[in-house]
Structure formats: structure tokens, C-alpha cells
């Protein structure tokens, strides 16, 4: 089985936010919830870079470790998913997540923050693949159809790469060798405890 990862090539990302819009539309993500976002570093200064960030589907995911009801699980593709039926909306996963991926329908923590929502790597949830109930809760399941996450698939500059970790690392490596520079695989050290050696 593949070990699915995201990689954002910040030297290509132009902050067009198409990945954000694609994600929102594909999964009917409501207002106020952003499974993916683009962050601009050193905005307006020389050396400005933009990075598209979502759940990185970490190795030994912190969110899964801290969850008080163990609602997270890792699929055979190493995608970190969660069950909205078990989630109690405590907000702990957001404290643990290095990338700010978990999102909640409510702002205050009175009673509950609502069922947590996050990037599913376009692979739904614990319900049966491609079922209506799965779509309602988690959005579409492109992985079950043999497709990759839409954000990366439609990235116009191919800055955002999704797929098997070794394959996207290879693509990135080739790019860096060809063009002679690269600002690195953002978040990989934190998410996967490894970086791409070039």
C-alpha cells in the first residue's frame, strides 16, 4: 500500500487559493471551516513564499494520540481519518495538531465545539465508501474512485503534490536538481520526522 502524503513546493505556489476553493466545493465545506488554506510568509517582502497547508496525515499523528475518545484511525494508505459519531468536540486535537488542521463548527467550547472537521485526503470517513451518509459527514471519497485529492490534482502550477510519499518526494527532488534550488518540503520534519534529502 502507498503511504499518502502532501507536499507543497513553495517555490511554485502562487497563492491562487484554487486548492482552497476546490476543497470547499468538492466537499461542500460550510462557511468558516477551512480544510485547506494558503499561508503567505514574509508577505510583501523580498523572498515572500506561500505554502498551501492542510492536514498532513502525520506519522504517529498527535491528534489521534490526544483524542480522549480515540475517534481517529489510520487507513491502509496512511491517511488519518476520524469518526464524527465518536467525536465529542473537546478541541484537544487542535491543540496537538502542528498544522492547525482540525476545524470546529462552533467557536465557543460551551457544551461542545461540534463535530470536528478536517481534511480527509478526499477519502471520506468510517462509513461505507461512496455512501450518502459518508458524503454528508465527510464529503466525497475520491480515493475510493482511484483519484487523488482534488486540491493537488487541480493545482495549476503543480506546487501542491499528493500521492505516495516516495513518488512525490522523487518528483520534488528532480525539480530541485533541475532548477537548482528549493525551500524544502514544508512541514515534513514535523509531520513525518523526515525531510527530503537532495
Amino acid at each position: 500500500m502507498a503511504r499518502m502524503k502532501f507536499l507543497c513546493d513553495a517555490d511554485r505556489c502562487i497563492e491562487c487559493n484554487a486548492c482552497v476553493t476546490a476543497c470547499k466545493n468538492e466537499h461542500e465545506v460550510p462557511w468558516g471551516i477551512n480544510r485547506r488554506r494558503v499561508i503567505t510568509l514574509n508577505d510583501g517582502k523580498p523572498g515572500e513564499r506561500s505554502v498551501s497547508m492542510a492536514c498532513m496525515h502525520c506519522t504517529d499523528a498527535p491528534c489521534a494520540a490526544v483524542c480522549p475518545v480515540n475517534c481517529f484511525y489510520t487507513t491502509a494508505d496512511a491517511v488519518v481519518l476520524h469518526s464524527k459519531d465518536l467525536c465529542i468536540g473537546c478541541g484537544y486535537c487542535f491543540y496537538a495538531c502542528p498544522f492547525g488542521a482540525p476545524q470546529y463548527p462552533r467557536v465557543g467550547n460551551f457544551g461542545s465545539r461540534g463535530k470536528m472537521d478536517k481534511c480527509t485526503y478526499c477519502s471520506g470517513g468510517p462509513e461505507a465508501d461512496l455512501s450518502t451518509i459518508e458524503y454528508e459527514k465527510y464529503g466525497s471519497n475520491r480515493l475510493a474512485e482511484g483519484k487523488l485529492p482534488l486540491c493537488a490534482e487541480m493545482c495549476s502550477t503543480k506546487a501542491l503534490l499528493a500521492g505516495d510519499g516516495e513518488m512525490i518526494a522523487q518528483i520534488y527532488k528532480e525539480r530541485v536538481i533541475k532548477r537548482g534550488y528549493g525551500s524544502g518540503a514544508w512541514g515534513w520534519k514535523t509531520a513525518y520526522r523526515e525531510t527530503i534529502a537532495i
Binding site: H27, E28, V29, P30, W31, G32, I33, Q103, Y104, P105, R106, V107, G108, F110, G111, G114, K115, D117, Y135, E136, K137, Y138, G139
Partner: peptide, 27 residues
Amino acid sequence: LGANQKYAYEAFSTSGARVSHPGTNLV
């Protein structure tokens, strides 16, 4: 507290956004 509970679609939308009540599902 429930009366003062803000939903993400209220808290993080701007005046230009016409958001009613999205409900609990994504769709």
C-alpha cells in the same frame, strides 16, 4: 451560553457573505 454561542460560519464570515444556517452536515 448557548444563546451566545457563535458558529464558525458567523464568526469567520464577512459582511458580504450571505450565510443562513448551514446545518450540521457539510452539504
